[in-house]
Design a protein around this nucleic acid. Structure first.
Lengths: 167, 167
DNA sequence: CTAAACTTTCAATAATTATTGAAAGTTTAT
DNA sequence: ATAAACTTTCAATAATTATTGAAAGTTTAG
C-alpha cells in the first residue's frame, strides 16, 4: 500500500467511524486530514483535499474548534487562517471524552436521576420504573466518573497499571 | 412527576441517546419500554405503546435480538410472540460493549494496523502518517481491551463465585 | 477610506436514513 | 389440507441531516 492509498483509507475510515459516534463525516475527515498533516492547513487546502465546499469547511472547522481539538494558527505574513489539530492522541482522547461527557452523558444522568426519584405510589409498574432507572443511573454515574478519571490521569500511571491488569 | 410522565421522559431520553450511539430511535425506544415493563410484551402492545408501525416494530425487534439484548419469550397457550430485554444493567452493558467492539472498534483497529504498516519511503509525510496512525492504533487497542476488561468484571466475579460453589 | 482578501451565514437542495403499510410468508389449530 | 393468526419483507414515502454556493460580513493593506 502506497502513501496516497493509505492516507485515503485512513481519512475515510476515520470519517465513517465519526458518523457512528455522532460526529458528522466532514468534521471527522477534516480532523483526520489535519491529524496526519505535517503542517497547518488553510481552508483552501482542506476544501481542495477533501473536495468539500467552503461553507461546509467553515462550519465544520468551527465545530472542531468548539470541541477543542482544532485550533487556528496564525502564520506571520499570511493573511489567511491556518488550522491544526491536537497531535497527541492522549490529549485528543481526553478532549473528546470530556466533551462527550458534558454534552451527552451528563444530561442523560440528570434525567435518570429525576425519573428514578418519582414518588413510589406502591404499584408494581412504578416500583419497576424506579428500580430500573435507578440501576441505570448508578451505572451511568460510575461509567462517567471512571471515564473521566482514566482520561484525566497522567498517561503512564494509568496505562501501566491497566496493561498489567489486562495482560 | 407522575408515573406516565416519568415513563415517557425515560423512553424519549433513552431514545435520543441511542441516536447518538448509532442505534436508531425506534430500536432504543423499544428496548427502554421493555426495560421498565413488568412483563414480556407482544408486538401489538409495543406498536400501540410507541405508536409505531408493525413493520418498524418487527425490524427493530430483530435488530435488538441480533444485539443480544432482547429475547423472544413463548408464553404457554399464547399464539403470538412476547419480548423481554435483559433486565440486569451490568449484563446489558456487557452485551452492548461486546457488540460495539465487534462491529465498530475491531474493524477500525484492523484498518489502523494496515495503514500504520505501510512501508516507510523516507518522506516526512509518510513518517507522519505512520507515526500518527500507529499512536491511534495503540490507543484504540488499549481502550478496547480496557472496555472489555471492565465490562467483564461482573461476569468474572459471578463466574468465580459459581466456581467456588461448585467445587 | 476603499478595495481586495478572506470567512461566515443561511436558504435551497441533495443525500441519507427511518418509517409505513400492504403483500407475501410462516406457523398452528382443527 | 385449509384457514386463521401471526410475522416478515420491501418498495414507496416521509423525516432528518449534510452540503452547497452565493450573498453578507469582516479584516487588513495601502
Amino acid at each position: 500500500m502506497e502513501y496516497q492509498e493509505a492516507k485515503d483509507k485512513f481519512i475515510s475510515t476515520w470519517g465513517s467511524l465519526g458518523t457512528l459516534w455522532g460526529i458528522n463525516k466532514a468534521m471527522a475527515q477534516i480532523q483526520s486530514l489535519l491529524f496526519i498533516s505535517t503542517k497547518a492547513l488553510s481552508m483552501e487546502e482542506i476544501m481542495e483535499e477533501l473536495k468539500i465546499s467552503r461553507g461546509n469547511t467553515s462550519m465544520n472547522l468551527r465545530q472542531l474548534m468548539d470541541w477543542g481539538i482544532v485550533t487556528k494558527e496564525l502564520i506571520p505574513g499570511e493573511r489567511k487562517e491556518f488550522f491544526t489539530t491536537e497531535k497527541d492522541v492522549q490529549e485528543l482522547a481526553r478532549h473528546i471524552a470530556k466533551e462527550r461527557s458534558r454534552r451527552e452523558i451528563k444530561p442523560v444522568i440528570k434525567i435518570l436521576k429525576e425519573v428514578s426519584s418519582i414518588k413510589d405510589d406502591g404499584t408494581e409498574k412504578t416500583k419497576e420504573l424506579i428500580k430500573q432507572t435507578k440501576a441505570l443511573y448508578d451505572l451511568a454515574e460510575t461509567a462517567d466518573a471512571m471515564m473521566n478519571k482514566i482520561v484525566n490521569q497522567e498517561q503512564n500511571w494509568i496505562t501501566k497499571s491497566l496493561l498489567k491488569l489486562i495482560k
